[in-house]
Design a binder for these strands. Structure first.
Length: 151
DNA sequence: GCCAACGTTGGC
DNA sequence: GCCAACGTTGGC
């Protein structure tokens, strides 16, 4: 999962009550589908800072609540308001995630670009814009190893 | 700030 | 259904 640290960072997540937050604001159908259909309780999530210097994978979170309607989508005052989404017929969905581990050292994109095992990772593909995207087990394990982290 | 790589909208 | 125009993402 991607986020711009200027708007919401892993440290913000660490400060949350129970280190848990709802992942609202996703307004892309493919990303929504991954959250709505694929993310299950206990699934692990790589936490990525985009538009950062350098862009980095900074930790691991865990899904603690499965798909439910993103209620910010029918809040007229919310930046991500969508008039086509209503409580009766929600268009956008989200999950709750809980911080599991912040990496001792962030894994910067330049460093990751040198790792052969990650050459096919969707995140590393040029033009990859999906804010919620799948990660293979091999990629996930490679990342943990690079971060010198065990869960 | 630039721009490539998207996804969405809407005219036809 | 096609596709041009437009808006957004996000690396650099």
């Amino acid at each position: 999962m991607k986020t711009e640290p200027d708007s919401y960072s892993i440290d913000d997540l660490a400060k949350e009550k129970k280190k848990t937050t709802f992942w609202s604001g996703v307004r892309n159908y493919q990303a929504r589908n991954f959250m709505r259909d694929d993310m299950k309780n206990g699934d692990l999530v790589l936490f990525y800072h985009s538009n950062a210097d350098p862009p980095s994978i900074v930790g691991v979170a865990e899904v603690v609540k499965e798909s439910y309607p993103d209620f910010t989508s029918w809040d007229e005052n919310d930046h991500h308001y969508d008039p086509k989404s209503t409580p009766e017929n929600p268009r956008w969905f989200m999950v709750d995630i809980k911080l599991k581990k912040k990496f001792p050292e962030a894994l910067g994109r330049p460093q990751l670009a040198d790792v052969k095992a990650l050459s096919d990772m969707e995140l590393m593909r040029k033009g990859s814009r999906l804010s919620v995207q799948p990660v293979t087990k091999k990629e996930f394990d490679t990342i943990l190893k690079l971060a010198s982290v065990t869960l």
